[in-house]
Simulated scan of single mutants.
Amino acid sequence: MYRPDSEQLAQPVARLHYPCGEAPAPGQAYEIAPGVLWMRLPLPNVLAHINVWAIDDGDGWAIVDTGVFSPQCVEAWEALLAGPLGGKPVTRVIVTHQHPDHVGMAGWLVERFQCRLWMTRLEYLYSLATVAETGQEVPPEGLAFCRRAGWDEAALDGYRNRFGRAGRMISRLPRSYRRIEDGAVLRIGTHDWQVITGQGHTPEHACLYSPELLVMIAGDQVLPRISPNVSVHPMEPDANPLAGWQASLSRIRRMVPADVLVLPAHNDPFEGLHARIDRFEQSLWRNLARLRDALREPRRVVDLFAVLFAVPVSGDDALQYALATGEAMANLNYLHVRGELDVRIDGAGVAWYCVRQSGQAA
């Protein structure tokens, strides 16, 4: 789940600098780099907001990320289009990844301005799959995944009630899109933006980096005050997204200089990219060490929430419970792939994890 760093619940991360001042209110836009506008849209969850970006594209604006499909976001977009965006058209909609707070209003904007949707292939296809779940029955594989993690019947009811809800936060997507790929260079207005894709948070998340402006639009791949959710999902229960996220962060550090202005989807724009990546890596190793210690005795996924998360996780909040489960599974799968854990499935289909004893065969 998106969560504060364990030891700094109410403090900004050390060595980060926030140079852009007060965040814009809904309907406002601030220029924070030449031709780059910072806008903020409301979200109906604990995150409260998402940052979206408008880039001067000559005769109009290229929009990066869009907010969820909701009356509040429609109202905010109407105010932005009529106000700070000056009535100029949207020339294209670029979406960093498939989560509803990023892709939710994309179809609405594309239809309104008869422009193209630009996404990586996997993120576009996952968006279509999310929409397709709306109104469908809960898959037995999803229930088995949750039972394997140790969910009780009350938590399973929460999963049933939430299934398909994400698709309702995405406006009708066009059945045609413009594919963007890692390493591609997008000319937006008078500046070039390099596409840098990453894994972990989602399968083919796109960041946009402008060497000339020294700005990187980071989506959810790098956030300043909270950790992105890196999860295992029922569709691919044996995935190892934490390894992909770690490799992606290392690659971003090699490709993007430390003094870049990072434009994240949540919290405020910041400077200190390499320091933030260092902090993520330190947190990863710390969490793995805690898990190894906790797994000296067999435990279920749900038994490990208190080990990994500084805030309580309760089945009363179905979304947070699912996010915590997915993230705990990501840590466990990471250790299992490394050959450090044994997994036993009991008669009820629940998985029990334990550190492999020294000298024990894999």
Rank of each mutant, 00 (worst) to 15 (best):
Q8C: 07
A23D: 08
A29Y: 00
E31R: 05
L41H: 03
P42W: 00
A48I: 06
H49K: 06
A54V: 06
A62M: 05
I63P: 02
V64I: 13
V64R: 05
D65E: 10
G67Q: 02
F69E: 14
V74S: 07
A79F: 04
L80T: 03
V90F: 06
R92H: 09
V95F: 05
P100E: 00
H102K: 01
M105D: 02
V110F: 04
E111F: 04
Q114C: 10
R116Y: 10
T120S: 05
L128P: 05
A129S: 12
T130F: 08
A132K: 14
T134L: 10
T134S: 10
Q136H: 07
V138C: 05
E141Q: 15
G142A: 12
L143G: 01
F145E: 02
G150V: 13
A155N: 00
G158A: 03
R168S: 11
I170T: 08
S171I: 08
R179V: 14
E181V: 09
Q199F: 13
T202H: 07
T202E: 14
P203E: 11
C207H: 02
Y209A: 01
P211Q: 00
I226T: 15
I226Q: 12
S227M: 15
N229R: 11
S231F: 13
M235H: 15
P241V: 04
G244Y: 05
R251N: 08
R253N: 04
V256D: 00
D268M: 14
F270R: 05
G272Y: 10
H274R: 07
A275T: 13
R286N: 12
L288A: 08
R296V: 11
V301D: 12
V302P: 10
V302E: 11
V302Q: 10
L304G: 04
F305I: 04
F309I: 05
F309S: 01
D317W: 03
L319Q: 15
G326E: 07
A328M: 13
R338S: 12
G339D: 06
E340I: 10
D342F: 14
W352R: 06
W352T: 03
C354D: 12
